[in-house]
Each structure stands twice: as C-alpha cells, then as structure tokens.
C-alpha cells in the first residue's frame, strides 16, 4: 500500500486527537505536514514550513479559520494563501505567498491525507472505531509478525479483537492506529490499548531496536 502514496489516502491522525482550534505535526510518506482544525471544525493539511523563514507551521496556532506561524504570526487560509503579515498590518499579502496544501478526508474518526487527487475515497472501517494511535519503531513486516497477521491492500491488519491501520512514517518507523469494535466497553478498550503496547514491544524486539527500559 505504501510504496506509492501519490493519489492514495494515508491515515495521518485520529479525529479525536485534533480538537477544533489546534494544529498537530503529522507525516505523509517522507514529508512533514501541519494538520490543523479550524474553530468551525474544518480540517486542513499543509506543508509543515512557513515560506517566510522556514519555521515549522505545526508549532503555530489556529485562530478562527486560519493557521498562524509562531515565529512572525503570518497566517494562512485552508487553501494555503497568506491572509495576514502582522509586521505590515496594511498590506494585502500577494497571491504568490502561499503554503502547499493537500487533500483531506475525515471519516469514521480517522483523518486521511493524500498528495494529488485520489480517484477513490478512504476505506471504511466496518463497525470498528479508532482507539488510539501509537508510533512503532519497526517496519510493516515486523508489525505483521508481531500481530500474527498480514496487512490487506488497505494497510489494515486484523489481530484478535483489534484492528491495526498502518502508515509508514520514516524508514523503520510506523504510525499505527488501533481500532476496536464500536460497542467495546471501557475495560475492553483499556485491554486493547495494553495489547497494542505489547504488540509494539514484540515488533520492536523483532526490529532489534526496542526502547531502553
């Protein structure tokens, strides 16, 4: 699934982890993006770099329907055009000042981002809901081995009572969204979270670079 990310959807974050009026760093393929939700609830994804002085936009802040860079407060609309340069309050920023943006879809509690314009829509989760995301310092193969199952064409692994939605970050690093049945109670969800932690330990042991305890 992950060899060619152009025109396909990558699950970058869970809806619940991105409240209105906030910005998070995220990754798609090898690129950093700033993923943000406006006060009215719309999600947008842009390159994680303010074109003024290269500051990461994911360190910025969201006011209303715009994201602002933390360095000099330059703000950008969802479409990527610059709205405001605080050092020059009277200036209407020229159209040429903009950040690259990417297509975003939000469905079943997952936020998906794509380079280009995918022909398809993001896959459905079929009665499962997101529980949490965690980063595993291992490749898909080690995670599959730890889960005892192989990812389908949509990057989904079925492992016992949980489902894992995979998104490769860098070489050797995978973002995993853990899904549970939508009717799971609190105790079951806590168990599922711990199961995912165990799976991470196993996968990282297999990868040969687990965390130091």
């Amino acid at each position: 699934m992950l060899a060619d990310t152009t025109g396909s959807w990558t699950p970058v974050a869970l809806s619940a982890d991105l409240p209105a009026g906030t910005v998070n760093p995220a990754r798609i393929a090898t690129e950093s993006i700033a993923l943000w939700r406006s006060d009215s609830g719309r999600v947008a994804a842009s390159a994680d770099r303010c074109p003024h002085r290269g500051m990461r936009l994911s360190h910025g802040f969201v006011r209303g329907e715009a994201i602002s860079c933390i360095y000099h407060g330059w703000s950008y609309a969802q479409a990527g055009n610059c709205l405001r340069i605080p050092a020059h309050p009277g200036l209407v920023p020229p159209e040429t000042i903009r950040v690259v943006t990417h297509a975003v879809e939000e469905a079943d509690g997952v936020i998906w981002v794509a380079f280009g314009t995918p022909a398809s829509i993001p896959p459905k989760l079929d009665g499962f809901v997101p529980l949490r995301s965690l980063t595993i310092l291992a490749m898909t193969a080690q995670i599959e081995a730890a889960a005892g199952a192989v990812a389908n064409s949509e990057g989904l692994i079925e492992s016992g009572t949980i489902r894992l939605l995979l998104s490769t970050q860098h070489e050797g690093e995978t973002l995993v969204h853990v899904l549970v049945k939508d009717d799971a109670d609190v105790a079951t969800r806590i168990t599922a979270s711990r199961t995912a932690e165990n799976l991470r330990r196993t996968a990282e042991d297999l990868q040969g670079k687990g965390s130091v305890q």
């Binding site: 994680d48 290269g54 990461r56 050092a87 020059h88």
Partner: peptide
C-alpha cells in the same frame, strides 16, 4: 531548532522576505 532547512538559504526563492 525548528527552521527548515537548518542551514541559511542564501539564494532568493527558498524564503520570502518583506520590508521588515
């Protein structure tokens, strides 16, 4: 520590300055 790239771009085009 969070500017990209870490090196200072000297050629125009990479970053956009204003009068300030």
């Amino acid at each position: 520590e969070n500017q990209i790239p870490r090196l200072l771009p000297l050629d125009p085009g990479m970053e956009i300055p204003t009068r300030a």
